[in-house]
Amino acid sequence: MSQQEIYQIAHQLKQQGKTPSVALIKSQLSVSMPLTAIIKGLQQWQKNPALGETKAEQPAETAAPADTNASADIATLNQQVTSLRQQVATMKVEIDELKNIIAELKAK
Results as ranks from 00 to 15, higher is better:
Q3G: 02
Q3T: 11
Q3P: 00
Q3V: 05
E5M: 03
E5R: 03
Y7V: 03
H11C: 08
H11I: 02
H11L: 01
Q12T: 07
L13I: 06
L13K: 05
K14Y: 09
K14N: 13
K14S: 13
Q15R: 13
G17S: 10
G17Q: 10
G17M: 09
G17C: 09
G17T: 10
T19N: 13
T19I: 15
P20Y: 06
V22K: 12
V22P: 00
A23L: 09
I25D: 01
I25G: 00
I25S: 00
K26M: 07
K26G: 03
S27V: 00
Q28L: 15
Q28C: 03
Q28M: 10
Q28Y: 04
L29A: 07
L29R: 05
V31H: 13
V31M: 07
S32M: 04
S32Q: 12
S32F: 02
M33T: 01
M33I: 01
P34I: 01
L35M: 12
L35E: 15
T36N: 11
T36R: 09
A37L: 11
A37V: 05
A37P: 00
I39M: 06
K40H: 10
G41Y: 04
L42R: 03
L42N: 00
Q43N: 15
Q43K: 14
Q44T: 06
W45H: 03
W45I: 03
W45T: 01
Q46I: 06
Q46M: 07
K47Q: 15
K47C: 09
K47G: 10
K47R: 13
N48K: 13
P49W: 07
P49S: 08
L51M: 09
G52Y: 06
G52V: 08
E53I: 01
T54E: 10
A56W: 04
E57P: 02
Q58T: 09
Q58V: 15
P59I: 10
P59F: 07
A60S: 14
A60I: 15
T62D: 08
A64C: 05
P65I: 07
P65T: 02
P65E: 05
A66Y: 14
A66M: 12
T68I: 11
N69A: 10
A70N: 05
S71K: 13
S71N: 06
A72G: 06
A72T: 04
D73A: 14
T76C: 05
N78L: 15
Q79P: 00
Q80W: 06
Q80F: 07
V81N: 04
V81W: 04
T82V: 03
S83N: 11
R85W: 02
R85M: 09
Q87R: 14
A89R: 08
A89G: 01
T90V: 11
T90Q: 15
T90K: 13
M91Y: 12
K92V: 06
E94L: 12
D96A: 15
E97Q: 14
E97Y: 05
N100Q: 15
I101F: 06
I102V: 15
I102R: 14
A103L: 08
A103P: 00
E104W: 08
E104S: 12
K106W: 06
A107K: 13
A107T: 07
K108V: 10
